[in-house]
Structure formats: C-alpha cells, structure tokens
Amino acid sequence: MLEIKDLHVKLADEDREILKGLTLTIPKGEVHAIMGPNGSGKSTLAYVLAGRDGYEVTSGDILWDGESILEMEPEERAAKGVFLAFQYPMEIPGVAGFTFLRTAVNAVRKARGLPELSTPDFMKFVKAKAERLNINTDMLKRPVNVGFSGGEKKRAEILQMEVLEPTLCVLDETDSGLDIDALRIVSDGVNSMRSPERAMLVITHYQRLLNHIVPDRVHVMVDGKIRKSGDASLAKELEKSGYAEYQSKAA
C-alpha cells in the first residue's frame, strides 16, 4: 500500500512550496488517477515518489509497504518496486535499448536477491513481455529513445515498466502527445498490468485516457493538495465543469 501523509515539498534551491499537505492512500490492486490543471504539482509528486534531486520534503512522509522511502536513493526505490513512466523520457545515445534494459533488469534483480539473467534468457523474457503488449522489439535495437516519435517513447516506457515488474507504477502524463492508436496500446499495456499485487497512479491532464484506463478512484489536485476524491465518474464531471471551482477555493 502507498501512503502519502501530509506531504509538504519545496524546491531545493528556491523558497517555493509546491506540495502543501498532500495526503493520499493507494491500496495494492487499485488504480488511482490524479487530475489537475498545469502547475498544480502533479509532476512534482511523481518525481518526489521516485526520489529525484532538486526537491526538499519539509514535512510529512511517504510509506511504501509500510516503510518510509524518503531517505532512499532512486535506485533503491526502483529495487523496492517503484517505477516512474516519464512524461519526457531521456535519450541515451549509443546505448541500445536491449543493453539498457538488461543492465536495469539485472541491477534490479541483484538488489532483489535474484540471480542475473543470461543474455539468451533475457532476450526470451523481453520478447514474451513485448508480445503481450503488442510492441515490436525492433525498437530495442536502436539507442534508447534517440529519434523516437512521441508514441514510440511512451510505448518504450510501458515495455520497460512491464519488464522491470514493479509493484508501484506511477505514470506521469503518459497520454500527452499520443495519437489514438498509441493511446490504445499504452492503455492496454497498463490494463494488462493491473494485478492484486500492484498499485498504480495515473497522472493526467485529460479525461480521455480514463476512458481506456478506468480508475478505481479519481483525485482532483489543485495547488499542491488533493481537493476532491471520488470514483471514475468524477473524471467525467471534471470534463464538463473544469477546475475553476477548485481553483477559486484554493485561492
């Protein structure tokens, strides 16, 4: 279970608070969605969960499986099962996708006390995962994300997520810049990964993604705080009414 308790976060080198007492609980087996306008702190939340530098947690806590992860390095969190699908995945020139994934899988396996996979075993493992997601592994022969279209980048993120077998998946605006076909592939991937062992947090701007990934809970985030929570119908409501009412409340 993911428990975020009264979390206050400011930028490390600036006196600006971004998350202002955010509280959120996601039990395993559930998919939650966070919706909110630009600048409400959604991406900050994703980065803080993954342990990116540049933010300072001034109070509150984040527990994963009952254990605080605030002091952990990003790679330790990854080993604990935390995965972040990036809004803007980074390019790594000269490093083939296969090499990157194999290095990552083996690093995570090592940290989890599992034996490393040999190259042939790894290839089989990845191919099976890719097939399940209906993703062509040809793109793994190319350098990581270099020259990828927006859709390819997001598909690669979903494949990485599948291969690394995380237990907490955070998807940061995974739908941005996707056409309808790519959106379906990404959503199918996410849906196929739903499991009682896994908690998922989908961060999005628009309701359209939630037509494909139907969340158990929807939270409205404005100005660094959850302003309202409800079931999937809340997303539809937001589509009509927008965030204006919450923004005025926050102000």
């Binding site: 995965f83 990036f86 790594i92 990157f100 690093a107």
Partner: peptide, 19 residues
C-alpha cells in the same frame, strides 16, 4: 532516468559514457 530504472549512479555514468 537511469537510476529510476535501478542503475546505481556509477553504473549510470559507465553506461552513458560507453554509449
């Protein structure tokens, strides 16, 4: 990005440099 996927800082630098 690399560390989020489980690589230590050192492994991440080695990977990027080798690329």
């Amino acid at each position: 990005y690399c560390r989020q996927r489980g690589l230590s800082q050192e492994e991440a630098v080695a990977l990027v440099v080798n690329g």
